[in-house]
Design a protein around this nucleic acid. Sequence first.
DNA 1: AAGTTGACTATTT
DNA 2: AAAATAGCCAACT
Length: 115
Amino acid sequence: MSNSFERIYAVVRCIPTGKVATYGQIARLAGLGRGARVVGYALFQITPGSDVPWQRVVNAQGEISESPHRQGNDDYQRILLKSEGIIFDEAGRIDLTEYRWQPDVAQCAKFASLT
DNA sequence: AAGTTGACTATTT
DNA sequence: AAAATAGCCAACT
């Protein structure tokens, strides 16, 4: 596993239940700057059984990003999020102004040395 | 070693 | 408002 991926996973693992984060947000926290795409690539390799809550990562529009290779799993992701208390609007989007995760260094000391 | 690729994002049509 | 364009960064081939 590449080091960058480890950092990304570390950040994602810190997203509390009931909250979501955007790819760009995670990229920045992981020290990747604008490498939002790398975050997506990292999540692509996550296998079921991993302790990384990949379902809490959505795109900047509050919508679930899907891929030609992952299609079918978007429904699964939506179900997981709903079970965590996240509400989807009519368009199937999440209200980021309410559910967007706001990193708290006190809760996640791992970031202290990354940012 | 160099080119391609992608769970992105912001900008421009 | 939806679709195409252009930057971005690291992994993969």
